[in-house]
Write a protein that binds this DNA or RNA. Structure first.
Lengths: 344, 344
DNA sequence: GGGAAAATGTGTACCGGTCTACGACGTCTC
DNA sequence: GAGACGTCGTAGACCGGTACACATTTTCCC
């Protein structure tokens, strides 16, 4: 018996459908795209043929002339719970449209992010969602001029793109008023220093400035203590050690992010200090971890799902032709857990 | 002064490059693809033109005839730290090639996963990495027959695709021997019940079976106690409550995943039981959280980075034409932390 | 020096869709 | 009943690359 090669059967194309339905390619195309000038009879006929053959249009071919029906999402890493929330919202919003979201990791270097962004552009995405991108404002605007773009998590507005941000000022105020309300005076803050010469990300700056302003507003200017490290767990750890080395040490620490707050908790644990008895700790982001009983971190919740859904809506609008920019701000809320308590 | 429309300048194409360099399109294409039959002079000349014009080939156009240089990754959700590790390995491996990885979320339903998989296929990816997919084996094989496919985290092998798994048998043995070595006898286990009629995911079954086997091997058949919930935090919580309701209650719990172990910790916390004094807890996966001092979970480490890198390698090989299947197994290791201690 | 073989460059069909232009037909209006 | 107009369907150029066939030149070898 002769060995037959496992025939890699060709994918069904629009021509196959046209032939099967006894109509022209153009007609099938019209039906697919819900274009004007199709009779009910034609629509039904073509749709049955599509059904029978199991036809699915090929995005690459569509992209060449029309749209790819693809939204590209650029993020530093996956694995960040807040990003997952954003995606949930985005996917939910896109579910009713014909668009699909694909994600790509940009990493934490300018170079790798650039490569990832190019990769999206090369793949002819119809719109781009950039989550907390590193890229400079000028290049960002250049991209935005060519493709519908929504930037999430960056405070530098531009008429060229839409932006979605959490109102970090409000969120930081919530934390600070909470701590001060508990009687704390020596409150330390951990912030994130951008690389030199990069104007990109104002978010840590806003949180830090709000911290300082609220301190001053309450006559605590002399107690201001900021550790400049990063928003990572390591950054929180290092920052906490720096703050704890002060004499007298702070009775509360407002970490700029939950990640950093985790590092703070680790440092306190190591130093034999108890939370919240010796030191109160607050974070920002309300990551899933923060809710765990062993962590129970007081933090700020920003609704990632809402942000993601909004991102989807804005992108679809831009794809449909809107050119006037929209800047959307989400009001955060405070989530009080066991990591903060009255000062002693 | 007349208002000039912000001219959306056309993207540079291969023809532009050809014209600029004074050669044919075909020649440029050859240079790009590193094809045979290009002189050094030609190569240099074309490359300079590409440089000068800032040309980048369009993936959609390439895909139509040749390759898209894209690897599609299908995962349930982003936001899972272990997946992030896999991606790190994959991206690292692909960095030296011309391929780019894009990700898509399949969700936890058959229907949404199917849609996501179709979306990848419609986008003409050259290879697919499926991380713990839900899809049935038959359909999986069908996809694999048409596209180079690597499946990660599923134990059902097939000649049609490559698979990468953690050796769950070894990992579970490590945990169990550790607990038994500490003197525990009443050890409970939390496992994940697949939906009815789905043969998909044997992984929880292997962990559970190994648990039972080791118990029996040590003459502890009578102490076997399994809670069937899920691998999520909620599942762990529910499972722990079920196990704790026994009399006498177990002195140790082996949760099938770190996620579930977090839920176990929450339940114990709520019940006023101390870890590890009253109950020892072990997980599986060594997520980043497990390492945090406030959690300090004994768990099994599987090297996601290695798995991701291997996935990349296998995919590239398949794209290059390999058809014989490869099944790769990663040997896990035990990470002992403070959540386990000698039985009292 | 001559013929074969290897190296190099080009022309062009083709991939699978979209979109524009146009023709055929039916309906309405006066 | 003629012209205007709206509706519906089709032909075929086109998007930006790739790949094959082929022409031309160069190299090699005896």
């Amino acid at each position: 018996m002769p060995m037959v090669a496992p025939e890699r059967r060709r994918r069904v194309t629009i021509s196959d459908v046209a032939k099967h339905a006894g109509v022209s390619k153009a007609a099938v195309s019209k039906v697919i795209r819900n274009d004007y000038g199709v009779s009910d009879a034609m629509r039904e006929r073509v749709q049955r043929a599509i059904e029978e053959l199991g036809y699915r249009p090929q995005a690459a071919a569509r992209a060449l002339r029309g749209r790819a029906f693809t939204i590209g999402v650029l993020m530093r890493h996956i694995g960040i719970p807040f990003y997952a929330e954003i995606m949930t919202g985005l996917v939910d919003q896109l579910a009713e449209s014909d668009y699909q979201a694909i994600m790509i990791q940009g990493g934490t270097l300018d170079k790798t992010e650039k490569r990832a962004l190019d990769a999206l552009i090369d793949r002819q995405v119809d719109g781009i969602l950039m989550i907390a991108p590193l890229v400079g404002r000028t290049q960002l605007e250049q991209v935005a001029r060519e493709f519908p773009t929504v930037v999430l998590g960056r405070h530098d507005r531009s008429p060229a793109y839409d932006s979605i941000v959490d109102d970090d000022r409000v969120g930081s105020e919530l934390v600070m008023e909470h701590l001060i309300g508990l009687g704390h005076r020596r409150i330390g803050h951990i912030t994130f220093q951008q690389e030199h010469g990069r104007a990109a990300d104002q978010m840590p700056r806003i949180r830090a400035e709000t911290y300082e302003r609220v301190m001053r507003d309450h006559g605590l200017a002399g107690e201001i203590a900021v550790a400049v490290t990063s928003y990572s767990e390591e950054g929180g750890y290092d920052g906490a050690r720096e703050l704890l080395s002060r004499d007298p040490r702070p009775t509360a620490i407002f970490a700029g992010s939950d990640e950093a707050a985790l590092g703070v908790l680790a440092a306190l644990h190591e130093a034999g200090l108890s939370v919240p008895d010796d030191v109160s700790v607050a974070g920002y982001d309300n990551t899933r971890l923060a809710a765990h009983p062993n962590i129970a971190l007081t933090t700020v919740n920003q609704d990632g799902v809402v942000m993601g859904r909004m991102a989807g809506r804005l992108l679809l609008e831009r794809i449909e032709g809107r050119t006037s920019p929209v800047h959307f701000s989400v009001i955060p809320s405070l989530v009080v857990r066991r990591s903060t308590a009255a000062a002693r």
